[in-house]
């Protein structure tokens, strides 16, 4: 069964290479289109402030032992008190991001743009590949593989007798779709690579995080932070240092 299937060179010239070239070109085109559509979003003052509050509270937690206990206590109260502490989030005011998204049409718009720039070209190219190139055996990998790779490499060919190392055209399309990231980062610069896989991941796992939740977590952390002033130890250490200097 494994006798060689001879692949027509025309398949290489008219399926394999065009498919790859088209995938690259579409990737580049998509990058520029999404760059055009990207609206420069101005961050909301409240969100920026919350981020900064969290950063400062984290600093306080990390460096608590380096300031006198009076100063620490004052700050702790300032952050954590139940009336107007910086980290205190009144109940009910904690918006969930879903609701926020609906209340802010801009945000929804942005999401849609992002998704559109991803989904439309993908469905189009997939349809195009399906229409023109379905059913080709486009390439052969030079090493044998186990049966489990069949669904990955021979998508679109329903023949269980073909050796697994042959790659169907549709599978070639998928390989290109996910494997061209390195090439894009070469062409378009490091950060600009169109990263489909990552975006899909983002799509799956909820939108962003909830700042108010972060605040209350930080508040709890700060509440249980014990203050243990580190400075008295420093006197001893300074003495040791000086003894070394003098000797």
């Amino acid at each position: 069964m494994a006798e060689d299937l001879v692949l027509d060179t025309a398949i290489r010239d008219w399926v394999l290479i065009p498919l790859s070239v088209v995938m690259v070109l579409i990737g580049v085109l998509r990058y520029f289109v999404s760059k055009l559509m990207r609206s420069s979003q101005t961050p909301d003052a409240k969100i920026v402030r919350e981020g900064q509050v969290m950063l400062r509270a984290r600093n306080l937690r990390a460096g608590a032992n380096f300031i006198p206990s009076k100063a620490f206590r004052a700050r702790k109260i300032y952050y954590c008190n139940e009336e107007n502490g910086l980290l205190f989030v009144p109940k009910g005011q904690a918006q969930n991001p879903q609701a926020q998204m609906f209340s802010d049409p801009n945000m929804a718009m942005d999401m849609m743009k992002k998704n559109l720039s991803m989904i439309i070209p993908q469905t189009l190219t997939f349809a195009w590949v399906n229409f023109f190139f379905s059913g080709f055996v486009a390439a052969k990998i030079p090493f044998p593989l186990t049966q489990r790779f069949r669904s990955m490499l021979q998508n679109g060919i329903d023949l269980s007798t073909v050796d697994v190392s042959y790659v169907s055209s549709r599978s070639w399309y998928f390989l290109n779709l996910f494997g061209l990231r390195g090439l894009f980062s070469l062409i378009l610069g490091e950060e600009n690579a169109v990263d489909d896989t990552q975006r899909m991941m983002q799509m799956g796992g909820g939108f962003g995080f909830d700042p108010s939740k972060g605040l209350s977590v930080e508040k709890d952390n700060l509440d249980i932070t014990q203050h243990d002033w580190a400075l008295p130890n420093f006197e001893q250490r300074a003495e040791d240092v000086l003894k070394k200097v003098i000797s």
Binding site: L231, P232, F234, E235, A238, V241, K244, V245
Partner: peptide, 25 residues
């Protein structure tokens, strides 16, 4: 007293090279 502690920590952190901290102590 607090100031002295902070001068001491400066001495520790600089390895005793800071003249101002020494005077401060």
């Amino acid at each position: 007293q607090t100031a002295k502690k902070y001068y001491a920590s400066t001495i520790d952190l600089t390895g005793g090279k800071n003249t101002r901290a020494l005077f401060g102590v």
